[in-house]
């Protein structure tokens, strides 16, 4: 229990009666970096707001370090964490005034404030920006000041809502470096919502995938829209381009996904009990850390993972013809 930074239980959030979040159980362990992924409208921002105690859930419980957040003064808990909004806002004052704000709120002495401001500006590469007016800054600079402002607080938890959506590549790399460093040096917990699957895997220890307000078992990389066709006792999901065999499911299935690690890659067709087998050409190869990510066009674009070893042994390359095989039970329906 003490190990958890957050624990979410049976939590829902609804706006005007429409459920936008429905999370049965989610735990965030201390000192780890989490990437939160999901398409637009999946509820990423709402979940970040609820974890940051900016919004109350409609039902259910949020525990912060084992403490029921509903039962204590939320503002004292809020001081232990901070969220960087997707489009950060700087108060209409100087850069220094902005970064020192959270320190003043916490009663930090002025000398110490100045020192922290200087340190944090240096960390984000904006030395001697103290006296600049917030209004005179560019978009990228605003983003960096917002990060410095958050770091100045020495938070136990840092939540970020797509911090790299509107910044240049250099800033992205810098931010990722800072996050890793902070996480390693101070053991702070980081939760980062992102669109960028590569970023999610690059920096996080764990990836949370949100889809239509629910936690999905794994990142829905191979996500398709379509409808179910029933043929006697066989259930097929028609994406419009290919038909994928699925387990008997409830009728209103609009989306399916296939976890990339459940897909077997072979050069020749293999005979197994798996009901799905497709062939196609590799159109994408990239390094995914411990494994190689392949994109295979089988009518739909499917993403799969293979180990580096098998990638070399099978002598795969761009344009190679491969067979992809997976079980109906690997297909997740939504």
């Amino acid at each position: 229990m003490d190990n958890f930074q957050f624990e979410v239980r049976e939590m829902t959030k609804a706006y005007n009666g429409k459920k936008v979040l429905d999370i049965a159980h989610l735990t965030i362990k201390k000192g780890r970096i989490y990437g939160m992924m999901g398409p637009n409208g999946a509820g990423k921002t709402t979940l970040l707001y609820i974890l940051s105690l900016l919004l109350p859930p409609t039902s259910g419980k949020i525990y912060f370090e084992g403490v029921d957040t509903y039962k204590v003064n939320q503002y004292s808990l809020r001081q232990k964490m901070t969220l960087i909004l997707q489009n950060p806002l700087l108060f209409n004052t100087t850069v220094e005034g902005n970064i020192a704000y959270g320190l003043r709120v916490r009663g930090v002495e002025e000398e110490e404030q100045k020192k922290r401001v200087k340190e944090c500006l240096k960390l984000v590469g904006l030395d001697s920006f103290e006296k600049r007016r917030a209004k005179e800054l560019s978009g990228g600079e605003i983003q960096r000041v917002a990060i410095a402002r958050a770091l100045a607080l020495n938070p136990m938890v840092l939540l970020l809502d797509e911090p790299t959506a509107n910044v240049d590549r250099g800033s992205v790399a810098l931010l990722e470096k800072i996050l890793k460093e902070l996480n390693q040096r101070f053991k702070i917990t980081v939760i980062l919502a992102t669109h960028d699957i590569n970023q999610a895997y690059r920096i996080s220890d764990e990836v949370i995938y949100l889809f239509e307000g629910k936690i999905a078992r794994s990142p829905l990389e191979n996500l398709y829209r379509g409808r179910v066709i029933k043929d006697k006792d066989i259930f097929l999901f028609d994406t419009g381009k290919i038909q994928i065999s699925i387990l008997p499911e409830r009728d209103e299935v609009n989306h399916i996904s296939i976890p990339p690690e459940d897909i077997i890659v072979s050069i020749k067709p293999i005979s197994t009990s798996a009901r799905n087998s497709f062939s196609g050409k590799i159109f994408h190869v990239s390094d995914g850390g411990n494994s190689i990510r392949l994109g295979v066009d089988v009518g739909e674009k499917l993403w799969v993972k293979v180990t580096k070893k098998s990638f070399q042994e099978m002598r795969l390359n761009l344009g190679s013809q491969v067979y992809l095989t997976f079980k109906s039970s690997s297909v997740e329906a939504y």
């Binding site: 503002y75 806002l89 108060f91 209409n92 704000y101």
Partner: peptide, 26 residues
């Protein structure tokens, strides 16, 4: 006033009263 002013003050640990004075200050 931008609704983010309130949110930002809250994320930076402002008390409810401080949040109000921050909005007024903006």
């Amino acid at each position: 006033i931008d609704p983010r002013v309130k949110l930002t003050a809250m994320t930076l640990g402002a008390s409810p009263l401080r949040t109000v004075t921050t909005i007024l200050s903006e």
